[in-house]
């Protein structure tokens, strides 16, 4: 309650930051919890010339909680867009809207419009199965199926009927693993369980599994948060290579990672999309105070 009272005293973010030098850490956290006005307008260019996915006025509610507030955002073809922001800002929630993974949560309610190649993915008549084949997802924790490495990759193509024969399936498996940079490491033990690989290998296996169904967009929800720096470097390298063929949206807690792998960056704050722009611009010349505070490590 005390925090709430003090918040009311602060009128702008600037006031908080001005005091920051005097009070230090205590105030820094306050800037992160200060909500923006409901009619806040995103700073920066949310639209692009050739969008793969286009979101307009997206709102997400978890029961009564308004988790995503009026977000407009385009995701450009063959580009990596990074979504950053403090914990609980809604970036993962937003990402999960893009292939309707939020449908699995009963109390979750999404409004607004998200288009994939001019098709409204929240259309009542739309089938989520082909949508998820088009918009694949890699999760925070590596989650290979408790089956063999081969089966992990072959599962998607098999249920979608993408491979006509066993030979074709073999080829898909090899190609996917090769694209994920895992083929050389596992080609001799495809029949061994995917869960027996190291964390980094498991995550690349999950990426390979996503690639195997040949999606157009790949969503990655903090794909490196459970990995060590070496494995992280490999996955980042992989993301950079995948950009040639896929459109990628990545949620990350690591600003360095966002700077390294993305071309565009979107900064989320308590459900608002605060600022969008080229990654270099966001990291060198942020226009909103909150973005600046976050990337300079004043809170978050």
């Amino acid at each position: 309650m005390a925090v709430r009272d003090e918040e009311n005293d602060m009128t702008t973010a600037e006031t908080v930051i001005a005091d920051a030098d005097l009070v230090g850490a205590k105030v820094r956290s306050k800037a992160g919890s200060r909500p923006l006005d409901n009619d806040f307008k995103t700073i920066g260019e949310v639209r692009v010339n050739d969008p793969r996915m286009s979101c307009t006025d997206v709102n997400v509610f978890y029961g009564d909680k308004h988790a995503i507030k009026h977000v407009d955002l385009d995701i450009a073809q063959n580009q990596v867009i990074a979504m950053i922001g403090p914990s609980g800002c809604g970036k993962s929630t937003f990402l999960r809207c893009l292939n309707r993974m939020n449908d699995t949560i009963d109390i979750c309610n999404v409004t607004g419009e998200i288009r994939l190649d001019e098709v409204d993915i929240y259309d009542r008549k739309l089938d989520v199965v082909p949508l998820r084949a088009q918009v694949g997802m890699v999760f925070q924790k590596p989650n290979p199926f408790p089956k063999s490495i081969y089966e992990n990759i072959a599962y998607g193509p098999r249920i979608h009927g993408l491979a006509a024969s066993r030979a074709e399936l073999d080829e898909v498996v090899e190609r996917s693993l090769a694209k994920a940079g895992l083929w050389e490491e596992v080609k001799d033990r495809l029949d061994q369980p995917g869960t027996g690989l190291s964390g980094g290998q498991q995550q690349r296996l999950c990426i390979a599994r996503t690639i195997a169904v040949d999606p157009e967009v790949i969503l990655m929800d903090e794909p490196c948060s459970a990995l060590d720096p070496i494995a992280t470097a490999k996955v980042e390298e992989l993301i950079d290579e995948l950009r040639e063929n896929y459109t990628i949206a990545i949620v990350t807690h690591s600003m360095q990672q966002a700077a390294r792998v993305s071309q565009r960056t979107a900064y989320f704050h308590l459900g608002h999309l605060v600022e969008v722009g080229d990654t270099t611009q966001i990291f060198t010349n942020p226009r909103h105070k909150l973005t600046e505070d976050y990337i300079t490590g004043r809170f978050g």
């Binding site: 949508l131 924790k141 599962y155 996503t210």
Partner: peptide
């Protein structure tokens, strides 16, 4: 059965029925 397995299956485009019968039920 960890929800991550369900998510993994749904994420590659398995229907709910496939998710349950191919992954959740065997586990």
């Amino acid at each position: 059965v960890p929800p991550s397995i369900r998510e993994a299956a749904l994420g590659v485009g398995a229907s709910k029925m496939q998710t349950v019968f191919h992954h959740v039920l065997p586990l």
